[in-house]
Amino acid sequence: MTSGKKILAVTFWIVTLTLFAWTIWLLRDDITPVERTMGPIQKVFYFHLPVAINTFIAAMVVFIASIGYLWQRKMWWDDLASAAAKIAALYCSVVLLTGMIWGKEAWGQWWTWSPRLTFSLVLWLLYVVYLMIRPAIESPQRRALVSSVYGIAAFLDVPVVYLSVKLMPDIHPRSIELAPAMKVTLLWWFVSVSLLMWGLLITRYRINRRVRDLNYPVGDETRTESSGRVARAAGGAS
């Protein structure tokens, strides 16, 4: 990393972490009022919703990077897709956990098969499986190919899952009336959670690039048969 990039990265993380501290401070009762019916537990929502939205953004990055790989066969697309899938799985886990904490308080149960919970669970499974299949395929080209096809299929699956869970009986709050102060807090949380997502994504992507450079120093950027064989032989030997 050049020193310019290093300064940029350090600045980014200082800003993001400061913003996080600030958003946590914003949750104080005198700044963000306690919601009347649900009480203090509703404050999980300021974290829950931005993380859920960012899960979709990460999933969309997987989708776009997967199309990019199939189109150009450049390995950096695969590195981007796998980095984004990791973030999507992580963020989706947070969505599930915060949702369950809320559910325990609101409905007295950690888990119910309500449409949105089921939807989050299926989404989580889709991206966890993405991460699980990668190490199982030895050849880097084949791994990138199978992952990108799966990345596209998983994203196309999301709207269908959304439609399918609509058939299930629902107890989730449909819409919540937010006071202006609550909206401001939500907006700040959205900014900091999004910055964190992009920061993690770019960091993970850079790590993926470095690992690939270490393992396959030359000639794996294009999908020519000879380079494929070289990479496959190297993958088999390591």
Binding site: L126, V129, V146, A153, V161, S164
Partner: peptide, 29 residues
């Protein structure tokens, strides 16, 4: 589609189930 994708890999069977089941969950639901 995925049978063709994983047919040249080492762990075909388990891998195929892992890929196809989560994608097919909406059908089951």
């Amino acid at each position: 589609l995925f049978a063709a994708a994983v047919s040249s890999t080492r762990l075909q069977g388990g891998l195929l189930a892992l890929l196809v089941f989560p994608l097919s969950l909406p059908i089951i639901i």
